[in-house]
Write a protein that binds this DNA or RNA. Structure first.
Lengths: 198, 198
DNA sequence: AGCCTAATTGATCGAACGTCCAGTAGCAAG
DNA sequence: CTTGCTACTGGACGTTCGATCAATTAGGCT
């Protein structure tokens, strides 16, 4: 049922957030949806949480599969973020609907804050591990904020107009940023003390 | 009339994209809008183009006012991107509506491609000027893509949940990236030849 | 078998939507 | 004054929406 919601949002964007459309895709009556989720907002919120968790698990799993070294795990994470299955412009449709509700309904804001905190926490951990490997102490929070913003910004633009640049370029831009970070070129993102002797 | 459209989208998000609501705000009859713009899609597209151009002019004007040196102009551009008037979460509402239509109607995609190309062109020019000042040859296109993605990603997250981090942190993250760029720490974003002797 | 609860249906309601169009008002040109 | 044209009004039409609810079906428990 949540699956039908996501598929409807993919296909029709905001117009897909209609109980009637969703029930048609799910093959059930419209009344049933209003019965299980009390109203439309709850259904959308549940779909949001499901998609966010599922996406993060996919990314985290792919990054863990990426190899032993922390740097390789970050690379796998970045590559996975621009994998064809993630890059589907139709998925952006879904997120746009969710984001537009985040600012309107407190329940959606709660889901957003919770899932994004987890996302940044994962990313910060990966980056800190890379830093430890290279002898720099990465400040996890701002580093994760920056890389997640870079990933999101590139992903959105790629979905909006896929012809502007290639996914490989997006990967390169993120990798360059990580290289600069653990090369010490972003001093504001490192702890002040215990700089490794050059 | 276009102004009323933008105000309606700010206030009500996607639900504001209704001819009846817009005509009420504009103080005219609903029929008049269908008379001047043939249908709703044309009205929204016109509003999109107006907002995009107006925003870019604001940013470019602020950056030009930022001072003499290219580096100061980029700083002013970054600060302007996170100025309170730009950071209004209500403005994100408007962009989300536009973006959701970019993927559905070719006319909106055309407006998006056109305005974003100009945006990146401006940004690339600024970054190249900074590079010239510091003796590095910046590749304008990928550099502009990266910085605009970083700006957008941070801006979106700030609008979605303003409590996650402060605008000053967003500015710092962008400034750090620019410093890394013109410090030579992002070699993939520089022309290979004519590196200045260290 | 009998019963209770939960799942499920489909009709119905009022509201809001986009588009259309007959009609009014203002104004410039003949 | 008349004619033509444009700006503009506001109601009608058909559609779709979210929510509600009485009625029906299914399934486990005694």
């Amino acid at each position: 049922m949540i699956d039908a919601t996501l598929r409807s949002l993919e296909r029709h964007g905001r117009d897909g957030a209609s109980i009637r459309r969703i029930s048609a895709i799910a093959g059930v009556s419209s009344g049933l949806i209003s019965h299980h989720f009390r109203n439309k907002a709850r259904l959308i919120a549940a779909a949001y949480e499901t998609l966010a968790i599922e996406l993060q698990e996919t990314l985290y799993r792919d990054s863990a599969r990426g190899g032993g070294s922390p740097r390789e795990r970050v690379s796998a994470f970045i590559r996975a973020s621009f994998a064809p299955s993630i890059l589907e412009p139709r998925i952006l449709n879904v997120w746009l609907v969710f984001w537009s509700m985040v600012m309107r309904t407190p329940a959606m804001r709660a889901v957003h804050d919770r899932t994004y905190r987890r996302y940044r926490s994962n990313l910060g951990g990966l980056l800190q591990a890379v830093g430890r490997d290279r002898g720099v102490r990465v400040r996890a929070r701002p580093a994760a904020i920056a890389l997640s913003a870079l990933l999101d910004g590139l992903w959105i633009e790629l979905c909006l107009s896929p012809g502007t640049f290639r996914p490989a370029e997006a990967v390169m831009l993120c990798e360059s940023w990580v290289d600069a970070l653990c090369g010490g070129a972003l001093p504001q993102l490192l702890q002040a003390r215990r700089r490794r002797p050059s």
